[in-house]
Amino acid sequence: MTYDRLVCANCASPVSEGRCRVCRASRERLQQEEGPFGGVSPLLLVSALIVLVAALALLANQTI
């Protein structure tokens, strides 16, 4: 989940703006949890997986 769509329960502003200390703490926590694929959309990951499976299928077909 990205913090650009979250609304703070403390100040009712977007968390990405960081208006209060709760927003800033949540924004920092979410930025640390992103990891290597945090900024990549799920659609892109699924399409990359499909391309990888198709490439492996083609490779397996050529070796037979």
Rank of each mutant, 00 (worst) to 15 (best):
Leu58Cys: 12
Asn61Val: 10
Ala48Lys: 12
Arg5Thr: 14
Val53Asn: 05
Cys8Asn: 05
Ala60Ser: 06
Ser16Trp: 00
Leu45His: 07
Gln32Ile: 12
Arg27Trp: 00
Glu17Arg: 00
Val40Cys: 09
Thr63Gly: 08
Leu30Ser: 03
Ala12Tyr: 14
Tyr3Asn: 08
Arg21Lys: 10
Phe37Asp: 14
Pro42Leu: 06
Ala60Pro: 07
Ala54Cys: 11
Val46Met: 08
Val15Ile: 03
Val40Ala: 13
Ala60Asp: 07
Ala9Val: 15
Ile50Glu: 08
Asn61Cys: 13
Ser26Phe: 08
Val15Lys: 00
Ala12Gly: 10
Leu43Ala: 05
Gly38Thr: 04
Leu58His: 15
Pro14Gln: 09
Val7His: 03
Gly18Gln: 00
Leu56Arg: 00
Arg27Asp: 12
Tyr3Ala: 12
Gly39Glu: 09
Arg19Trp: 00
Val22Phe: 02
Cys8Phe: 03
Leu59Phe: 15
Thr63Ala: 13
Leu44Phe: 04
Leu44His: 13
Cys23Ser: 05
Gly39Ile: 05
Arg21Ile: 05
Arg19Met: 01
Leu59Ala: 05
Ile64Gln: 02
Leu58Ile: 08
Ala54Thr: 11
Ala54Ser: 08
Leu56Glu: 01
Leu59Arg: 01
Arg21Ser: 10
Phe37Met: 13
Thr63Leu: 10
Glu34Val: 04
Ile64Tyr: 12
Gln32Trp: 09
Gln62Lys: 03
Asp4Thr: 08
Arg24Tyr: 04
Gly39Met: 05
Cys20Trp: 01
Ile50Pro: 02
Gly39Pro: 12
Leu58Gln: 11
Leu6Lys: 03
Val46Glu: 12
Pro14Asn: 12
Leu30Ala: 08
Leu43Asp: 05
Phe37Thr: 13
Leu6Trp: 03
Arg5Gln: 12
Leu44Ala: 09
Ala25Asp: 10
Leu44Cys: 07
Ser41Tyr: 07
Arg5Leu: 15
Ala48Phe: 11
Leu49Met: 07
Val7Ser: 02
Ala12Arg: 04
Glu33Trp: 03
Ala60Val: 06
Asp4His: 04
Ala60Thr: 11
Ala54Gly: 11
Gln31Gly: 06
Ser16Leu: 14
Ala55Val: 06
Val51Pro: 02
Gly35Asp: 08
Glu28Gly: 08
Ala9Arg: 11
Cys23Met: 03
Ser26His: 04
Glu17Ala: 04
Cys23Gln: 07
Arg24Lys: 01
Leu30Arg: 03
Ala25Pro: 00
Ser47Val: 15
Leu6Phe: 10
